[in-house]
Structure formats: structure tokens, C-alpha cells
Design a protein around this nucleic acid. Structure first.
Lengths: 221, 221, 221, 221
DNA sequence: AATGAATGAGCATTCATTCAT
DNA sequence: CATGAATGAATGCTCATTCAT
């Protein structure tokens, strides 16, 4: 079997992670075996262990890299000097895209990483994951603050809890939309996207200052 | 060994399910083996298969029975002629209680049962689960309708999507609060309950007619 | 595959242990896999784990049962009212037989069980192994004492160290004879048995009172 | 990467063997991987295979080199014109030192190298090992002969079997003392060294002419 | 000469499930 | 009805060894 050209370690990690991601998405994480990943990636099973310590590390790698993507998506949304509402929509859509690409990490990011604030023993990778998470949090908080300053968002919002509620709710509704897509279509006659847009509007109205036209998304207008 | 008096099948199912539920909650679903369940329930492992087709069916049974509890909780909330806001709070708290009691089914109910509307092959149990779900949906929809009629909720709400968004968001924020309890405490100095109350208020404001006092929960008042 | 008749647990343990013992002897312990044992015993691999917690426990079981045999062999040798020398020979031959039957445990018994006198956490099986060992020690010590009393053995022997030296030496020479059997034959023209007899005589002379005829084994006479 | 100056093959073998020896002693032979050895020696894993055919050969090399050390130790003991007893003690202590330094080869030397006298296919290394062994044997035999001639040892000793018994017994008691050091201390209140001295005395008395003072070691005197 | 890269062949262990009694 | 007994099929992981460069 032809050995690969000497490619940097990171390429192999990427290859393996991509294969894993693909299978995780198709069959779920725990139903995907290292054997499967090896086959999909075109490596021998033992080679997987050359590039990743174990399955856990593959998952961690994917979680981290997915969070990075989400992070840069949000960064972009906020960097361009857009209206509060425009930013909001971009963030929401970023999350939707993220969930579509990494449905399983969505959950992991939200649940599994029950960061233990007592123990400061972070593995380097865990640490980075945590940092990216914090970075997202900061951006979101700045977004909320600036929205308030601009007069777009209610000024009696408590920033931190608002962000957290917000985050949980978006995650919840996106997951629901994703898993019940067909149900939504058949019951409401809405595509998943339409439904989510409605949800995002609804959620926005809970933080927006008043119910004027600016609260409507581009789509609605 | 004739261990138990001849008791109806349902009693045995209940016994087994109770044991399973207990272990699921303690150790998670996939970490709980049929062996564990048998031991906990005081039956032989083979007997489990007399009363349940397989592990899956035990889970399904628990999902169903948990949904029934949730359903009756909501029923109660709505039957007593309370204010819209009161009902809302009761429903929210019902969900919180549900998540606390059945953390694993919460997720399953929301995700795993990707009911396939194409395939009409419902197992009887699945069908019942579906029906209970529909029943909850109906009640919630009636709740929204009556809230609108009473003038408590916005009258431009699209009932179905509102309900669905609502449901997803509540689920999301409850799960988040549950898995990041410590984080919430250390970052915001709020208990899980306080945080959730804030979230519920926030969400309510997105469906309530105006920002007057009635939008505040009992607690806030 | 025909299920076995309902036989007591101990029978299965015996079957498995016998198969394992057989393979251990042929190929060594670490070269023998659970697969091999299962095949040899005519059980499925999973069944092995029904009767033994793990490979370690199989080894422990064999060590223990081999020690029991050795113990009863020594018991017999000492119970019959024989001359000191007769007893001595019987003990030696018991050890030879033991080594022939359980070559690997011989080493394990002597080395692996580095009983940790600090920790009192004995597993039940370990405890029994230890007890059988102690029982052998006691018998041997009584043998030495009685030999001294009878005037057959030197009366300035320090019992405990003598026993221990004795034991180590016997073990050493038996192992050597066993592993270098061919070498012994080709170099000295002696069978393993003849060689060992010589060794035993030599060793006996180091504890026997004087170099008179009673120090000769039956064979030599 | 030209890491080292072009050094002769033997230097690399030595480096690798030293690293291996170090790890073998710390963790045992089978628990030491080629990876470990490579890391410890500062070579790449593949390079190990440039200098040694396989793990087996590394072990063989170490066995041989350890035997050489033992051999020269014995040579020294016998070259200096000492009393029989003095030589005896030196030899015994040489073995003790050897066991301390190479606990794992001790066993291997005694057991694993079941030199097959039928097959004449010696690998060169095996042959050398055999030769060193023979050389040790010769010296010991000369020692015994000279002891007899000097009138220190019994004159009815059969030289070859005596040597072999002797060897096995010493090995046995040294191994026992080493693995049960704590047990010896707690049961007999003797250090390993004290116990072994007792054993060596005991063994000497089985070959020494009579039980006069010369049979006592320096220590005892 | 030296090695980075890759892997085949295993291994102990687990677990949901079946079936004869 | 209840179950003791048995197991097929996996699973994550390891390691000595090979080979192209």
C-alpha cells in the first residue's frame, strides 16, 4: 500500500478528524468506532493512534475546531459595522450553520464540557476549548452592551444572564428545529429555516427596546 | 424460584422501569447495563426480556411515562383557572422539575425520537408517545390562544410556531442551566433557579402584550 | 452448540482452569490468550468471564490449587511416621512433581506474590494462597524441629532461616534441573532425576547431624 | 539528522543496551516497549532495528554482557590466591551483586536459554553466551577441584553434579531472598544480607570437609 | 546511516440478547 | 413464569516490526 508523501502532522490530524466528523454526523459519536474512522480516513487503525491519543482526543479536536469556526463566524458578524438587528441575525444564522455542520458537538459544547471550576487541571486542548468559549461569551456580551448603548436593546437587561438565556434558547430551538424538521414542515407548513426565523424574531423581541419595525429581520421586511 | 406473587405484567414492567430509571439517572443511559437493571430490580436478567423486548423498549417506556407526568403537570397548571402568567410559570416550573427528574429523557424526547412521518410503522409504544406529545402540544396551543383572547399575549402571534419556538427555547435554557449550574453560580452569582426565572421572564416578554407589571413573575414582584 | 448440563460452578471453573494450566505449561502464561483458553476448554470466550473475573483470577486460582496439592503432598509425607530422611525425600520429590505439573506457578509462588505486609488488603483468594503458604511453612518448620529432636538434624540450626534457605535452594535446583535437563544429560550423563537426587543428598548433608549412612537416600543405598 | 559522530556500531549497541537495561530493571522486560527504549536511548525506534535484529536480541545482548561481568567477577575471586572459603564467599557475593544489578537476566540465564543441544543452529550471540557459561562452569569446577585438593572440601564430591546443584541452589536462594526481602525481615528479623550469609554457610557445610571453624564466613567469625 | 511513517495482528474485556429447562 | 447459562460480536487500544526515503 502506497505510503503517503511526507505531509505535516496537522494534515493527517485533519484527515482523520474530517473522516470522524463525517461518520459522527451520519451515525452518532458512540456508534462510530475507531475501526470505522480508520477505514473512512484510509488509514490503518493503529495510525489513528499515532495522530490522536484516543477517541476522546478526536472528539475534543472536533469540538475545538468547530468552536473556532463558530467563533470566527461571530467575530465576522460583529466586526462589520452593522445594525444591531443585522448582527443578531448573522449570529443566529451562524449558530444554525454550526449546528448543521456539527450537530453532535453542539450538544457536547453545551453539556459535556461541564467545566469544573474547582479543578484547575486543564489539559491544553481543554484549556483552548474553554478559552474559545470565553471569547465567544465576551463578544456576545459586547454585542449586547453596544446594542443597549445604541438604544436598540432594552436598557434594563442584565447582561450576563441575558446572554446565557439567549444562548440556551437559541441552542434549544435550533436543535429542536433540526431534529423535528419534518414534523415542523408537516404541522406548520414551514421550512426549518422559516420556522427558525420566526423563533429568532420572537427571541429578539424579548430583548429589543420596543416593538417597532427595526425588530423585523430582513426576511420579514 | 417463584419469587413474586402472580402479579400483572404491568407491575413487573413498572418495577423494572423504576429500577432502570434510577440507574439511568445515577450513571447515564448507556453506562447502565441490563445486568445492572436486573440486579437493581431484583429480577434475573432474562426476565427483563420477558417484560421488555430490549433495552430500547425500557427507555421508550420511561420516555413515555415521563411524558405522561409532564403532561399531567401541564394539565393541572392549565385546568385551575389561573392568570396567563401564573399558568406560564407553572408550566415552566413543570419543565424544570421534569428535567431534574428525567434529565436523560429530556434530551431523548427532544432529539432521539426523530419521528419519521414518512414511515407509518409506529410501534404501539411509539404511537402513544407521539400521542402524549400531541396532547401536550394541544394544551399549550390552547393556552396560547386563551392568553391571546384574554389580551395577555400579543395578538399577532402565530400559534403553532410560537409554541414550537417556545418549547425549544425553554428546553434549551433549562438544559443549559442544568449542565452549567456551577458556571452560572460562579460567573453571575445566581442560583440555577434564579437564573431560570430570569430566562422565563425574558421569554415571556417576547410573547406578552406589553411590558407592564403583569409580565413579572410572582418571584419578581 | 449443545449447552452443557447444569453443572456446578466449580466444575466449570475446574474445566477452564485445567485448560488454562495445560496451555500455560505448553506456551507460558503471557503467551496464552483468553481466546486460547476458551478454545481449549470448549467454552466461548465470554463464558470464561462468567466463571472468572479475568485472566489474573485464572492464574490466581491455579496458583492456589497447585499450592494446595503441594501442601497435601507435604502433609502426607509428614503424617506417616517416617524417618527424617524418608520425609525429606518425600518432600523433595513432592516439589519435583509440583514443578513438573505447574512449572510456571513455581516461579509465581516464589516471586510474584510479593506479599505486601504493609497493606492488609488481601483479596479472599490471595488470602487463602497466603494461608496455604503459611501452612506449608509451619509443617516444614515442625519437620525440622522434630528432626532435631530425633537427633537426625544438626541441633544448632536456626529453624526459620534454615527452612527458608532450604526452600529457596530446592526451588532453585529443581528449576535448573528442569530447564537444563538436556544439558545435564549430555554433560554429566545423568537423568534429571538422578541429578536431583544428588542435589537433595548434598543439601541434606548440610542439615544432617553427621555424615553417617542415614544421610543417604533410599536410592543411593 | 546527523546526530552522533560516526561511531562504531558497538557504541550504538552499547547505548541502546544500556537504555534497555535501565528500563528493564525499572519496569520489567515485557513492560518495556521498543518505544521506551528508543526514547531512553535517544534514538529513533527504527534505528534500534539497525543495531539489533529485534527485542529478543537486545535481551540476549544484555544477558551476555551481564554474564561476562559475572564471569570476570568470578575470575577475580579465583585468581587471587585466597582460601577456599574466601573464594566461596566472593563467588556468592558476586552472584548476589549480579542479581541485584540484573534481576531479570538472572532468571533468563537460568531458564529461558534452554539451549537445545540437538539443534546446532546457534546464532553467534547465543554461542558466545554459551561459551561464557562454559567458562564460568570450568572455573567453578576448578575451584571445586582445588578445594578438594587442598583438603578443604569433601573428597567424595562428584564435581560436575556438585557444581550444578550448587549453582541452582545459590540462584534459588538469592532469588527468594530478593523477592521476599520484606517477608524475611518481618518473619526472621534478618536483613536480606544476613539471611543470605546464613544460607551460604549452610550450603558450604554441605561441601566442606568437616564442620570446623574454617566453614564459617568472615562475617560469622 | 538514520528515521518518520505506517501497520498487521492481537488482546483483554464487555454486553445485549437467546434459549433450554 | 422465570431464569441460569452461554455467547457472538464488538471495542478501544498496543506494540514489535517494516520500509521508503
Amino acid at each position: 500500500m502506497g505510503r503517503r508523501k511526507k505531509e505535516p502532522r496537522s494534515v493527517h490530524r485533519e484527515n482523520i478528524a474530517t473522516a470522524a466528523s463525517c461518520l459522527f454526523m451520519k451515525n452518532g459519536i458512540s456508534a462510530t468506532t475507531m475501526n470505522d474512522i480508520a477505514a473512512e480516513a484510509g488509514y490503518s487503525k493503529a495510525t489513528l493512534y499515532v495522530y490522536f491519543k484516543n477517541k476522546e482526543e478526536i472528539i475534543g479536536f472536533l469540538v475545538l475546531s468547530s468552536m473556532k469556526k463558530l467563533c470566527s463566524c461571530i467575530t465576522n458578524a460583529l466586526q462589520n459595522e452593522n445594525s444591531t438587528r443585522k448582527c443578531y441575525d448573522t449570529i443566529c444564522n451562524g449558530l444554525v450553520k454550526y449546528e448543521k455542520e456539527f450537530p453532535y458537538y453542539f450538544r457536547i459544547v453545551l453539556e459535556k464540557i461541564k467545566i469544573d471550576f474547582e479543578s484547575t487541571e486543564y489539559l491544553p486542548e481543554e484549556k483552548e476549548t474553554y478559552e474559545v468559549g470565553e471569547s465567544i461569551r465576551e463578544m456576545m456580551i459586547n454585542f449586547l452592551k453596544s446594542g443597549i448603548e445604541k438604544g436598540d436593546l432594552k436598557d434594563n437587561l442584565e447582561i450576563e444572564p441575558t446572554f446565557f438565556s439567549f444562548w440556551g434558547m437559541l441552542a434549544g430551538v435550533i436543535q429542536l428545529a433540526s431534529s423535528k424538521e419534518k414534523y415542523i414542515e408537516s404541522t406548520m407548513g414551514l421550512t426549518k429555516e422559516q420556522f427558525l426565523q420566526y423563533s429568532f424574531d420572537m427571541l429578539y423581541s424579548s430583548i429589543a427596546k420596543s416593538n417597532n419595525e427595526q425588530n423585523l429581520s430582513e426576511v420579514q421586511k
